[in-house]
Amino acid sequence: MDKAEAIVKALGGSANILEIEPCATRLRTEVEDETLVNDAALKAAGAYGVMRAGTVIQVVVGPEADVIASDIDDIL
Rank of each mutant, 00 (worst) to 15 (best):
L42M: 09
I20E: 01
V8T: 07
L11I: 03
V31S: 01
V60F: 09
A44Q: 14
I72H: 02
P63N: 13
G49R: 08
R26M: 09
I68H: 05
A44V: 07
D2S: 15
Y48R: 10
K3L: 07
D66V: 14
T35S: 15
D74R: 13
V61R: 07
L42F: 02
V8K: 01
N38C: 07
I7M: 08
A24M: 15
N16S: 06
G62D: 03
D71N: 10
N16L: 06
D66A: 15
G54R: 06
A47C: 08
P63C: 06
T29E: 00
N16Y: 02
V59G: 12
A41Y: 02
A44E: 15
N16W: 02
E19Q: 14
A24C: 12
A4K: 05
I75V: 13
V31I: 12
G12I: 01
M1C: 10
Y48C: 04
V8A: 06
I20Q: 01
I17R: 00
L18Y: 03
S14P: 02
T35F: 01
K3Y: 03
V67M: 11
M1Q: 11
P22V: 05
T55G: 13
A10I: 00
A69T: 08
K3I: 09
A15S: 14
K43F: 13
D66M: 12
V61I: 13
R52Y: 12
A15P: 02
A15L: 06
E5I: 04
V37C: 00
D39Y: 03
R28V: 09
G62L: 03
I75T: 03
V37I: 07
T29V: 10
C23F: 12
L76M: 14
D74P: 01
G62R: 05
Q58G: 09
V60N: 04
A4P: 04
A53N: 12
Y48K: 14
I72E: 05
Q58E: 13
V8M: 04
G49V: 13
I68S: 08
P63V: 09
M51C: 04
E5Y: 04
M1F: 02
L76W: 00
R52K: 15
P63E: 14
D74I: 11
A53C: 12
R26L: 12
T55E: 11
V8Q: 03
K43R: 15
E34Y: 09
M1L: 09
A24E: 14
E21S: 14
A69F: 03
D66P: 09
V61G: 10
T35L: 03
L27K: 03
N16I: 08
Y48E: 11
V59L: 12
I57A: 02
V60E: 04
A10C: 09
N16H: 06
G46R: 10
A45N: 10
A4Y: 02
E64C: 06
G46P: 04
A4M: 05
V37A: 00
V59I: 14
V37N: 00
V59M: 10
L27D: 02
G54S: 06
A44I: 05
G62T: 07
D66W: 03
E32T: 08
V37E: 00
I72C: 03
V8W: 01
S14T: 06
V31N: 00
R26V: 14
M51T: 15
A41I: 02
V31A: 07
D73R: 11
G13R: 06
A45S: 11
V59E: 12
E64S: 11
K9H: 01
A24I: 15
A15H: 04
E30F: 01
